[in-house]
Amino acid sequence: MNITDREFSATRRLVLKGAGVAALIGLGVLPLDVPQALAAANDKYPEEAFKQKNEADAIKALYGGRTAEPSDQVKMDAPEIAENGAVVPVSAITTLTGVTSISFLVSENPVALVASYRIPDGTLPSVSNRIKMAKTSNLTVIVEAGGKLYSATKEVKVTVGGCGG
């Protein structure tokens, strides 16, 4: 599977216009231009999951006892070093079929679950958002597809910066 820049860009534009995402729920997410009204439309708010401090508990609250299997079909685009920890651009796209949700977790944040998106049938499974990161941490994206969980993880460094040669 080759995801071209063009596809990425087109997706981003859809997200920006609010057409590609039916529900935006989450903490620490800076909604781009997505009308807030859309967020209320779909599914109920996973209140318990957003209360959990650590990643494992958040995943359990969100997905029950299921565990995520690392998959190279889940592509995450995140920086190696955040240019600004308060606004880290992260996107996820997958070639998996039957995707029902995409979630983002930051293990070292005070509350691990950052955002969880419901993906309606027939929607391109692609999400782009900007998150806050308190410090250097693993960032995990979990894709729910066909009732199973798949993941990709990347460490993103947060630094005070300066002093480059």
Partner: peptide
């Protein structure tokens, strides 16, 4: 280009 311009220098 240097990958960390906005981190190593003022953004």
């Amino acid at each position: 280009a240097f990958p960390y311009v906005p981190i190593a220098h003022p953004r």
